[in-house]
Simulated assay, not measured.
Amino acid sequence: MPELPEVETTRRGIEPHIVGKRIKALHVRQPKLRWPVPDAIHQAEGKKLQAVERRGKYLLFRFSSGTIIAHLGMSGSMRIIAKGEPPMFHDHVDMECSDGTTLRYCDPRRFGAWLWTTDDPLQHALIEKLGPEPLTDAFNVDYLLEKAKGRKSAVKTFIMDSHVVVGVGNIYANEALFMAGIHPKRAAGRVSEARYEKLVQAIKTVLAASIEMGGTTLRDFVGGDGKPGYFKQTLRVYGRAGQPCLTCKAPLTEIRLGQRSTVFCKLCQT
């Protein structure tokens, strides 16, 4: 599933090609996504796209008359296509600009979304209860300590909760916990302030690095330019079960935690 770095990479990739341009037409070839694409979305036609923003894993296409809220789902991608490029079977939505520039949305599993709102999109039911953005000052050790009080759930599950903080998907949770030296099964309420200080910084570091490198290459993800991300080349623990820890050389351990693959070092993470 595309995570925050992949979505931000997509946003940065498509933004310079379409912002400031007038939308000629929205071609919805398959309206049956995770939620039906509403007819009201065509209110964007004829309007100038003012901005492409991101909140969590949602992309917000802002117009004077409203906002398109889009989500990539499990396997979705967006890219700028060449003029006249015919759609393939899984290409469900095209946003065609008046100059011919076209943003194409592909979603083989159809778990993504294209929605429309005329209200403040940040107050939309899908967005309003999301936790802070991890790369902002709002995500800090004091905030995380307060949210963790009394929590018995595993710290890895805790930081992957989008109501606590957005964008810390499975890969990035594995990597950040390794960088901070924290065992993924440790109870969130039993992590010290000093360790949370390290974890906050690790989360910021790993997400920022992934964004700069274009996201993490998985089976389905490609960036807004159609190219894969390359952060996978730098992963320290995720996908390396049984291989030597890059710090102590002990074999890395893999367990299932919250139905997700969790890889860690028994010696470096306590």
Score class of each variant (00 low, 15 high):
residue 25 A to F: 04
residue 155 V to Y: 08
residue 64 S to E: 15
residue 246 L to M: 10
residue 128 E to V: 14
residue 5 P to H: 06
residue 252 L to D: 11
residue 90 H to Y: 08
residue 46 G to C: 07
residue 253 T to S: 12
residue 79 R to M: 10
residue 44 A to T: 00
residue 89 F to Y: 12
residue 200 V to N: 02
residue 168 V to Q: 05
residue 205 T to Y: 10
residue 259 Q to K: 14
residue 218 L to R: 05
residue 22 R to E: 13
residue 20 G to Y: 10
residue 250 A to K: 13
residue 188 A to Q: 06
residue 206 V to H: 02
residue 140 N to V: 10
residue 117 T to C: 12
residue 225 D to C: 10
residue 161 D to H: 06
residue 203 I to L: 12
residue 129 K to C: 01
residue 86 P to I: 12
residue 267 L to S: 09
residue 252 L to I: 13
residue 243 Q to L: 15
residue 3 E to T: 06
residue 15 E to V: 09
residue 93 V to D: 08
residue 65 S to C: 14
residue 28 V to S: 06
residue 114 W to E: 01
residue 184 P to T: 10
residue 96 E to M: 12
residue 181 G to E: 03
residue 248 C to A: 08
residue 77 S to Y: 03
residue 17 H to P: 04
residue 258 G to Y: 04
residue 174 N to K: 07
residue 234 T to E: 14
residue 265 C to V: 07
residue 193 E to P: 13
residue 126 L to P: 03
residue 31 P to K: 15
residue 85 E to Q: 14
residue 160 M to T: 05
residue 225 D to L: 10
residue 115 L to F: 07
residue 102 T to S: 15
residue 16 P to H: 14
residue 239 G to H: 00
residue 251 P to L: 15
residue 214 G to M: 12
residue 202 A to W: 08
residue 135 L to V: 03
residue 142 D to A: 13
residue 204 K to W: 03
residue 160 M to A: 08
residue 177 L to E: 09
residue 72 L to A: 08
residue 38 P to F: 07
residue 41 I to L: 15
residue 266 K to F: 01
residue 270 T to P: 02
residue 19 V to G: 07
residue 235 L to N: 08
residue 29 R to I: 11
residue 165 V to I: 09
